[in-house]
Computed example of a mutant assay.
Amino acid sequence: MAKEFIYEEEKYQIDCSKSVTSAGDMDPATKTILVDKDLPEKFHEGIAVHEIEERKYLLKGHSYVYSHNEAQKKELEFYEQKYGKDKSLEVLKEEEAVVLTITRRHSTPKKNKILKAEEEIPEVSLNSPAIEMRTIQQAAFEGKRYIIDHDERLVGTLVDVYEKGNVIYIDRDVPERFFEGLALSELITRKFLRKGLGWSAAYVEGDKAEKDYYIVKYGAVEGEELYNDELKFQAWKFEQEKKELKEEGGHKVIYEKDEILPK
């Protein structure tokens, strides 16, 4: 059963009855915060604050990394009010450790079977969104031009978008052949977030658009192979990231300005 939660004089519902791939999500239409059923109750309200605040920044056109970091700060403020300043950061770190366990579990891609030529060709919309990669540094989508920044190290994602600055960030280790699909997926995801969908539903739309795009552009077999290769790369990258973060002292719950994407 959903629990009522009031934040900044707004009434929300917290629903923790189901699995949530990103640990937390939000349905803006019903003002419901979705929290993964495996998350301890002590973190539910903090996650709710995070989802509310993160969405505000995303809808203003900021990158996910920046939005997430700002939401972490707001969540820390909330925990300070609830648990006191001395204990608040400890609670946030504990929550982050649990969240990373949940999201890692859900985000490891399944090894999909590569489509064989004789197998049924998947149903694909011929009107699927198109992205035009003009050069390795630029992309055009729905009449808007973006600069591709491939110099940054991203944490927890392969692609991010700073819509206010027309920048698409792609992790520096990502092979060029995945650029257009990742960029399209993230742009479509953001588009559906603006339409009022939660993260999970918007991500499904972005993922579908990417897969359809690959198949329309490269054909059923090559498109499916490229999509699956990207999933395998993502799984490898996240495993490498876990090792690197461990060597560097672990994932930080709040990053300094010079450690994350600026906007």
Score class of each variant (00 low, 15 high):
Y12R: 00
Q13D: 05
I14T: 01
D15N: 11
D15G: 01
D15I: 09
C16D: 13
K18D: 15
K18S: 11
S19F: 09
S19H: 09
V20L: 07
V20M: 08
T21M: 14
S22I: 02
A23F: 05
G24F: 03
D25A: 08
M26W: 07
M26C: 05
M26E: 04
P28N: 07
A29Q: 13
A29R: 13
T30F: 04
T30W: 03
T30E: 07
T30M: 07
T30H: 07
K31M: 04
K31H: 06
T32V: 08
I33W: 00
I33T: 00
I33G: 00
V35T: 10
V35L: 13
D36A: 04
D38K: 15
L39S: 15
P40V: 09
E41K: 13
F43A: 02
H44C: 07
H44I: 13
E45S: 04
I47T: 06
A48C: 06
A48P: 08
A48N: 02
V49G: 05
H50T: 00
H50L: 06
E51N: 03
E51R: 03
E51D: 02
E51H: 04
E53Q: 13
E53T: 00
E53A: 04
E53R: 10
E54N: 07
R55C: 03
R55E: 00
Y57F: 15
Y57S: 09
L58Y: 05
G61L: 06
G61V: 06
G61K: 10
S63P: 01
Y64C: 12
S67I: 02
H68R: 08
E70W: 01
Q72M: 06
E77V: 00
E77Q: 11
Y79M: 04
E80I: 10
E80C: 09
Y83W: 09
Y83L: 01
G84Q: 09
K85F: 03
D86C: 05
D86N: 14
K87P: 07
S88K: 15
L89N: 09
E90S: 12
V91G: 01
L92T: 00
K93C: 08
K93N: 14
E94A: 04
A97L: 11
V98F: 12
T101C: 07
T101P: 10
I102W: 13
I102S: 15
T103Y: 02
R104C: 06
H106K: 13
S107D: 12
P109S: 04
K110V: 15
K110Q: 12
N112Y: 08
L115M: 11
L115Y: 06
L115N: 12
K116W: 02
E118G: 13
E119T: 05
E120A: 12
E120D: 12
E123D: 09
V124L: 08
L126K: 14
N127F: 12
A130M: 14
A130D: 14
M133S: 11
M133W: 06
I136E: 00
Q137S: 14
Q138L: 00
A140D: 14
E142D: 10
G143C: 13
K144C: 01
R145M: 03
Y146W: 11
